[in-house]
Design a protein around this nucleic acid. Structure first.
Lengths: 153, 153
DNA sequence: GTAGGTGCAAATGGTTTGCAATTCG
DNA sequence: CGAATTGCAAACCATTTGCACCTAC
């Protein structure tokens, strides 16, 4: 636990829920927070071992489940290979996923803010984060489709 | 294949991609289209057997993978028990998921339309559907948190 | 008629779990 | 010190796959 990778808010959320701040959780959070893309359990393990050489895959599973239940991250399907995890501490994620090659583009625009307020009050839901995902075909896969291969275009 | 559960657009998409219209695919699509909630593989199998008594779980897996690759449905994490599938032929899905009890609320509002047009032209992406997901605590779980149990409130 | 699709059951491997040792508070 | 957490390895079970039979086209 050499570095201060968890924000104060994260530590408070962990500890108020009765959980401890450990080296394993620190390493997983460090990886999630710096990852430019969403990662699988195995990818998180590989990267986190740079910070915690004895980290086990079982702990990665346990930690990601805990973080998800606390609202610190979110599992998503973005193609093949099972769930991938995104850190949602900053509150929102927006991306486009190609259904053919699974490439993913991120964009900063967000139109969900006003809706969030409206829904919060209507349903009494305390909204902590959101995800906006567009789904379709990227430029390259459209071109391949038009070339005749699978006729999807 | 007694009923006409696939839209003409779905049949065209299947066949232009070189796939056949079969009883198994028909049954799975029928279940997806009429389901008020998102279902797991096993739930889809159970319901689809009413339409196709000999349907196998393996075919459900194969069919859902195919439909996903064609953009006819979408896997999501909405709590425990692995992926759940939503039919996205109608183009969009909006819901709120509670991170504690996993209850799910749907709502009709959509603010993604204008953004869709903008992103399409900027990235050359052909957007076919989208998902807007809010994530947080439902009214009941907020109350439980405030009652002191896990201090999340 | 034939390539594509299905059901079955076995194989696979991702995920979970029991437990002794370790660590946080 | 006591309870929570971890790593390991075995257990579990969801998912995939091989194959012979069937069916859409």
């Amino acid at each position: 636990m050499e570095e201060n990778v968890m924000t104060q808010a994260m530590i408070v959320r962990l500890q108020q829920a009765g959980y401890r701040k450990t080296a394993a959780r620190n390493a997983v959070m460090a990886v999630l927070r710096q990852a430019p893309l969403h990662l699988t359990h195995q990818e998180i393990l590989s990267q986190a071992r740079a910070l915690n050489a004895t980290l086990s895959l079982a702990s990665v599973y346990r930690t990601l489940e805990l973080f998800t239940s606390l609202g610190l991250c979110r599992p998503l399907y973005l193609g093949e290979g099972g769930p991938r995890f995104a850190c949602v501490e900053d509150g929102h994620h927006h991306h486009m996923v190609c259904r053919a090659c699974y490439c993913t583009y991120h964009f900063p625009e967000c139109t969900a803010g006003e809706l969030e307020v409206e829904l919060s009050s209507r349903f009494g839901f305390r909204i902590e984060s959101h995800l906006v995902e567009f789904y379709g075909l990227c430029r390259e896969c459209q071109a391949e489709g038009e070339a005749g291969k699978d006729g999807l275009g």
